[in-house]
């Protein structure tokens, strides 16, 4: 039973990683950049919904919507002000800018909300589910379902909707997409909007599970989700799901059965081993280099 319960906990943590990793993967696929500030958008999302629950007294679901809106705007503004001027710059310059944005968000949060730890209220109002001796918390169920819904929605969006197809076109070949009349800037903005809205969802879910909120809350899940995106093959949506779930399960299992302190080391060691066997991640596309 302990095994099954750990497995389910792993799935739910992995679902959150997968939702965050989607933001990394989509931005990487389309803008070819590592958006290091993504983890901090999670933190902003969590703070906004904390404020709206405590200070404005909104119901949790409304708080979630408000934080999604705020993060969407934030993501688009960050892209417009910080990343768009660097569209043709070297990838390292963009990476450093993203790190700068990450510091900026953390320190603005520090000024607004101070470094005092806030205890995040869970947004899930129903209790745990008991099946025999197995207990599944409401947060677990909600995060797994949310992840599945988001994955299906996003897959449909990228295959059926016009904007989604435009996103795939831009990620395939930016110049060709532009020649076909697709506005690259608009598409990238949409990508950031979706990624940041998902980050808000992930932030609220993550903080419902681990209710400690400080300005650096986003950085650890951010790094883990980035790892998950690479594990599954960065740029691929199903890969992100696989990578996220795998990472979550490995983390919970190594915490439960091997060592509490070494769980992060084990997670990263698995990443290294997988990249050695499959250098482009589990479901990543193999890129052949033309000379």
């Amino acid at each position: 039973m302990a095994f099954l319960s750990n497995f389910i906990n792993g799935l739910s943590l992995g679902s959150i990683y997968a939702i965050i990793a989607l933001g990394y993967t989509m931005v990487y696929g389309i803008a070819k950049m590592l958006n290091f500030a993504h983890g901090d958008v999670i933190m902003v999302g969590a703070y906004v919904s904390f404020v709206s629950i405590y200070s404005l007294g909104t119901p949790p679901i409304l708080a979630l919507l408000i934080s999604m809106c705020v993060c969407t705007v934030l993501g688009v503004v960050i892209e417009r002000l910080a990343y768009r001027p660097l569209r043709s710059a070297a990838s390292l310059a963009v990476l450093i800018t993203a790190i700068g944005v990450s510091y900026l968000l953390q320190n603005v949060a520090l000024l607004i909300w101070t470094s005092n730890t806030k205890v995040f209220p869970s947004i899930v109002s129903f209790g745990s589910l008991h099946i025999g001796s197995l207990t599944i918390t409401g947060e677990t169920i909600v995060s797994i379902i949310t992840c599945v819904v988001i994955m299906i929605g996003l897959t449909l969006f990228t295959t059926k909707a016009k904007t989604g197809k435009a996103m795939r076109a831009v990620s395939e070949n930016r110049q060709a997409a532009e020649l076909m009349g697709i506005s690259v800037n608009k598409t990238i903005s949409v990508t950031f909007a979706i990624g940041s809205a998902l980050a808000a969802v992930a932030g609220v879910l993550y903080c419902s599970m681990y209710p400690v909120l400080v300005p650096t809350t986003g950085s650890i899940p951010g790094i883990k989700a980035f790892t998950a995106a690479v594990l599954g093959g960065i740029g691929s949506i199903p890969g992100t799901l696989v990578g996220g779930l795998l990472l979550g399960i490995i983390e919970i299992f190594s915490r439960a059965y091997i060592s509490q302190d070494l769980s992060d080391a084990i997670v990263f060691a698995v990443l290294i081993i997988i990249l050695l066997v499959k250098p482009n991640g589990l479901l990543g596309k193999k890129v052949t280099e033309k000379v």
Partner: peptide, 25 residues
């Protein structure tokens, strides 16, 4: 050094975290 580009970057990140984590225990 067998890996390339961003994959190489993330693996160095992973090693940095592993070293920190192991030294911490």
């Amino acid at each position: 050094l067998r890996l390339r580009g961003d994959y190489l970057a993330i693996v160095t990140l992973a090693f940095g975290e592993i070293i920190k984590n192991v030294l911490n225990c």
